[in-house]
Write a protein that binds this DNA or RNA. Sequence first.
DNA 1: GAAATTAATAGACACTTTGTTGTATAATAG
DNA 2: CTATTATACAACAAAGTGTCTATTAATTTC
Lengths: 200, 200
Amino acid sequence: MSTKSQRTDPRILRTRQLIRDAFIDLLEEIELEKITVNRIAERATINRVTFYLHYRDIPDMLEKMADDMVNEIQAIYKDVLDQSRSIDPDWFILVKMLEHIAENSKFYKVLLASKRIPVFTERLLKLMVDVINSKIEKRGASPSASTVSVPKDIAIWYGSSAFLGTIAFWLRNDMPYTPLFLAKQLSVLFRLDQNQTSSN
Amino acid sequence: MSTKSQRTDPRILRTRQLIRDAFIDLLEEIELEKITVNRIAERATINRVTFYLHYRDIPDMLEKMADDMVNEIQAIYKDVLDQSRSIDPDWFILVKMLEHIAENSKFYKVLLASKRIPVFTERLLKLMVDVINSKIEKRGASPSASTVSVPKDIAIWYGSSAFLGTIAFWLRNDMPYTPLFLAKQLSVLFRLDQNQTSSN
DNA sequence: GAAATTAATAGACACTTTGTTGTATAATAG
DNA sequence: CTATTATACAACAAAGTGTCTATTAATTTC
């Protein structure tokens, strides 16, 4: 956000990438608790002190990586909204998200599925809550509302957890369905939740 | 499982309880990463070495506590099945589970909702998968199956994640609904998932 | 292309945590 | 009461943490 120096120093980008790769690599092998700054530096072939030039400690590193993750996904989200050909079906944004996750599956699998690093799960869950919430509000008091009605907050809890959890299982099982197919199934399962959501 | 020594030494039970309470206490205040054996021993008013008499390290402690957790819940599950008055509605077991969680809400809230300690989430999720799986199989190819059909595994991923996630949100929001009410809502939301589950 | 700026390296430091050992003391069970 | 066993206490080496200072290397900027 500073006025000058638009581009960031390539050395910084390089080092951050090395750290990130080393961390994901290590996390595939050992538990998070056993991962030390020492090991990360060694694996990333950087000096241990250099790590501290970028992150305060490991939890701080996780948070910043989680920030990057949600920023990337939100960029995709805005992209879809901008070129909003309203012809797109409901699950179009879901396909885009799943495709992005599939493209970076090593990253997402280890952080959301294999080892479940809470920061990442939480950030993505929050994002899901927002998306579902806006979807429900867009529909408003659905005229096709069914007989039964579930409090809106419970429906959101249910739906967002279901989405994120299903994605985690999908990654864990090495993505046995295409993003398109899974998106359609999720859409089918979720639409029903909404149909019985009370509008208050 | 040993033939002799039915009762365990009260000193052991006392120490384990002290450790458990101290750990939950600390986890309410600070992040898991900052919790050391030192701090636990200090808070539990036991000697640090004593900790190592019970657990290899902190991850080992977490696993054993998670074992205890699933054992308690499975005991409830079997209890309900044993006195199986088949009059009980579908969500009866759910009410019992939610009541148990509500009774130990401090424990469950910190481990499943506030801080999300992966071991506990994983174990409970696995339990949910089993429960839902058996429910689906009991119904078999539901005669009232609806038009659409979702692969069984996706439905299980979806439902189990939704259940566990909803419970986590419920705890996080200090249980704004009674166990009975929430169980009914979950049952309503889930029954629909099943109705559109393909039987293969 | 040279000078100024910034990043990464290297060695060192005090400090905390870890996991283990040996001995002594207290509580429990038979 | 006696033997057993859990816990307390002190001490240890090893490893990790976070910070410092000086030095080298890469990059902007003009």
